[in-house]
Amino acid sequence: MGTRNYKRKTSHSENGPGDGGRTGSWRVERPILDKSLCIPCKRNKEACFICWLFCPEIVISRTIPPKIDLEYCKGCGICAEECPTKAIIMVDEAEFSKEDKE
């Protein structure tokens, strides 16, 4: 067979988001940011960003205010636990209406 057709025989993935599907559907609790407690929002300049550093899923942006991408957020709650001012709280997904989920 030789190696002439080798190129066609390798499996090679392209990078892209959502390898595990829309992982937001795994979520049981949703993180909600309270802007009045969030340090970068209060000071209106770059500060803190602990939630951005510790988010395993990279769904929290390093912006003011930090935005949470609910399409991929798995709802682990590390951001809520690590936030020094408790600006992020975890709310049960059942409290959001069906339309809101979509």
């Binding site: 892209g16 988001p17 595990g20 992982t23 395993p56 899923e57 991408d69 399409e71 991929y72």
Partner: peptide, 8 residues
């Protein structure tokens, strides 16, 4: 990228 297969 976000949306990996890793556990929560």
């Amino acid at each position: 990228h976000p949306g990996t297969r890793a556990c929560t």
